[in-house]
Design a protein around this nucleic acid. Structure first.
Length: 280
DNA sequence: GTTGAGCGTT
């Protein structure tokens, strides 16, 4: 639901949707708006979210009012590093230009370059490689399997339910008063859709939320342990063959498949006698 | 606190 005033979402047939991919999961429409608005008139920004977690799926839809502006945004913002991630901006297959869009590119826009439209952008060459593959056929997320979410369900998951407890006006009040971009909480996600008007009414002076989370600095990593401190996996006193690993964890070894003749200490037997007699 | 291909709405 696009809270575009009270008129609802703008007609897609009159807007040009851009698909923004590879954005961070924490990137919101507020971060994308000042980026896309500078290249044209952004009508609406929509970021699909997970219906369970409510988090961004990693891509967004930016609608422009004009095609040339959208095209310019694609050429300018495509490949741009946002929040540390290189985003991919391309025309969405959904919309008025869907019939002219092929893998995010307009076919009729380059009639003279139609024969060589393949290599018009040198900076997006390596990406087209894996995109032409069948990666798109597989599931969106392999890590988050549908079976796993059954155990999570909405039981002890994030209290996303209370997201609907607050009124949009209530968020808006404290949104421009004491809200901080660093305090981004799931509950602060006001709506699934975004309207540029909301961004303007909150004041564009807040367009400097460069520092979202101080602890999210990529250079915050520091070695806490030394490799020299690592001790051997087993103690020297436990190396006794009498204490087999099977004793410690009888059922911990999934691939425990004794052939029934290999468990014997035949090793010393091999050392006891020469592997092969050089003498006649 | 996490993940990373992919086309959208209470």
């Amino acid at each position: 639901m696009s809270r575009f005033g009270r008129s609802g979402p703008p007609p897609i047939r009159d807007t040009y949707s851009l698909l923004v991919l590879n954005i961070t999961f924490r990137t919101t429409a507020d971060d994308l708006f000042p980026l896309f608005d500078r290249y044209g008139e952004v009508v609406d920004i929509y970021i699909p979210r997970d219906r369970r977690t409510g988090d961004s799926r990693g891509f967004a839809f930016v609608r422009y009012k004009f095609e040339d502006e959208a095209q310019k945004a694609v050429d300018r913002l495509d490949g741009r590093v946002v929040d540390g991630r290189e985003i991919m901006v391309q025309f969405a297959k959904y919309g008025p230009n869907a019939e002219r869009i092929s893998k995010g590119r307009i076919l009729e826009t380059v009639p003279r370059s139609r024969g060589r439209s393949r290599s018009r952008s040198p900076r997006r060459g390596h990406r087209d490689d894996y995109r032409d593959r069948d990666y798109r056929k597989r599931s969106r997320s392999q890590s988050r399997d549908r079976n796993e979410r059954d155990r999570y369900r909405e039981n002890d998951y994030r209290r996303r339910s209370k997201s609907r407890s607050y009124s949009p006006d209530d968020y808006r009040r404290r949104g421009r008063d004491s809200v901080s971009p660093a305090h981004r909480s799931p509950s602060h996600r006001r709506s699934r859709s975004y309207s540029p008007d909301d961004y303007r009414r909150r004041g564009k002076h807040s367009q400097s939320p460069v520092r979202k989370s101080p602890s999210m600095s990529p250079v915050r990593k520091s070695p806490s342990v030394s490799p020299a401190k690592r001790r051997p996996s087993v103690s020297p006193v436990k190396r006794n063959p009498s204490v087999s690993p099977a004793r410690r964890s009888p059922s911990h070894s999934p691939r425990r498949t004794p052939p029934s003749h290999e468990a014997s200490p035949v090793k010393r037997y091999d050392e006891s006698r020469p592997s092969h007699s050089p003498s006649t």
